[in-house]
Design a binder for these strands. Structure first.
Length: 98
DNA sequence: AACCTGACGGTAT
DNA sequence: CATACCGCCAGGT
């Protein structure tokens, strides 16, 4: 899998996250089956436009500093409940094989 | 090839 | 809960 295919695979995975659900960098990486959380983050930084990037968050439920507040707002727009500045992943974490 | 970098994650303190 | 550390892994210099 070359880099371009990798980027496509990651973007497809992110596009498949339904409104109201959230995934993590690590989960996306595992689903794609290549690279790690940091690679997924790198793809989002460069090609995140065009896909629902705000549905990808750290495993802790706290957004990356770069996008912080905006991400939380967009998630609220999706109907995701935010508590103390973080997402409750136990409630909305998305499993691709669902 | 060596070294730095980082939209990360898990563990320890 | 906050910080520190270390492991990870690919891209850039």
């Amino acid at each position: 899998m070359d880099r371009e295919e990798y980027v496509e695979a990651v973007l497809r995975a992110v596009e498949s996250i339904p409104e109201g659900r959230v995934s993590t960098y690590g989960d996306i990486a595992a689903y794609v089956g290549q690279g790690g959380p940091r690679q997924v983050g790198a793809v989002m930084r460069e090609y995140g436009g065009g896909v629902p990037w705000w549905r990808v968050i750290r495993a802790s439920g706290v957004p990356a500093d770069e996008v912080g507040d905006e991400q939380l707002q967009l998630l609220r727009g999706d109907g995701v409940r935010i508590t103390d500045g973080k997402v409750n992943l136990r409630a909305v974490r998305w499993d691709p094989d669902e």
